[in-house]
């Protein structure tokens, strides 16, 4: 068991490293695409700046506070996106027969799908998110207690896991309908866009849904309430602000189940 996990982690690293080397052989293209990623997501934040040229606060949050939410969400999404590569193109891979080829290799299918076409250029998006996040931390007028400082990596780790799980579920659905890849976008990119703003701008039912149904609120909202010392619009127990690991674990469990079911379906239909 331990041996198999080690083999798969090792396999992931090998495949990812191979794709990095491939991308490095097209240096100019790599540089341009990384810059492109940086700019795309950069303009995303410029849009928020444009909004703030008309207002001073949104949903009771200042620009720096929203930058903190934005940066957290962008970083978590960026990291998940980097780690899972093009998992969202699973349907296309099934059609091309790539999945069959992966299944005759002595590695987990999931690991191979995630590592396939590993794209380091996604660091562009991470860099942009990191920049905004870093600036907000610098600009926020906060008393950085040990608990607050510790909460930052906590937010990033579990937020990333939540996005990993959502990406995985979105991809696994393609074992049933290959055309559904855009459906996943609603949850991944939709989710991260949502989390870039304070949830106070959404109706209470939406916040509840984002807490209990699709737990995107645990990516950065609840940890940020703690760090930024903001009131919880749902008035949930304070423990909720530390509950990200629980949400991440539950969602990962669901993701694993959906993925396994999808693979089982694929292996009994061959399509």
């Amino acid at each position: 068991m331990v041996d198999r996990v080690a083999a798969n982690v090792c396999g992931y690293a090998l495949l990812a490293w191979m794709w990095i080397r491939v991308s490095m052989s097209y240096r100019t293209s790599f540089a341009l695409l990384t810059l492109g990623q940086f700019l795309i997501t950069g303009l995303d934040f410029v849009a928020i700046l444009v909004m703030f040229s008309n207002v001073d606060a949104l949903g009771g949050f200042s620009l720096t506070e929203i930058a903190f939410l934005y940066g957290g969400s962008a970083l978590c999404l960026g990291l998940a996106d980097l780690l899972l590569g093009n998992i969202e193109r699973l349907g296309q891979r099934i059609r091309l027969g790539t999945v069959d080829q992966m299944m005759v290799r002595p590695l987990s299918l999931y690991v191979q799908v995630c590592a396939d076409e590993f794209a380091l250029r996604r660091l562009g998006r991470i860099a942009q998110g990191g920049l905004v996040f870093g600036w907000s931390i610098y600009a926020l007028d906060l008393d950085w207690t040990a608990a607050r400082v510790a909460m930052v990596p906590y937010l990033l780790v579990f937020g990333t896991v939540i996005f990993l799980a959502i990406f995985t579920i979105g991809a696994a659905v393609q074992f049933w309908t290959a055309e559904s890849s855009e459906l996943a976008n609603a949850f991944t990119y939709g989710g991260s866009t949502l989390a870039q703003f304070p949830l106070t701008i959404y109706p209470t039912e939406a916040i509840k849904a984002l807490t209990f149904v699709v737990p995107i609120a645990f990516v950065n909202w609840y940890p940020s309430l703690f760090i930024l010392d903001k009131p919880d619009p749902l008035h949930l127990p304070t423990a909720t602000q530390f509950a990200a690991p629980v949400a991440a674990a539950l969602l990962s469990f669901v993701a694993a189940a959906v993925w396994r079911t999808g693979v089982r379906r694929y292996r009994s239909t061959g399509s």
Binding site: V55, L58, Y202
Partner: peptide, 11 residues
């Protein structure tokens, strides 16, 4: 929509 509602609520 909700983002815009928040913006226009302020301004």
């Amino acid at each position: 929509s909700f983002t815009y509602i928040a913006v226009w609520k302020q301004n």
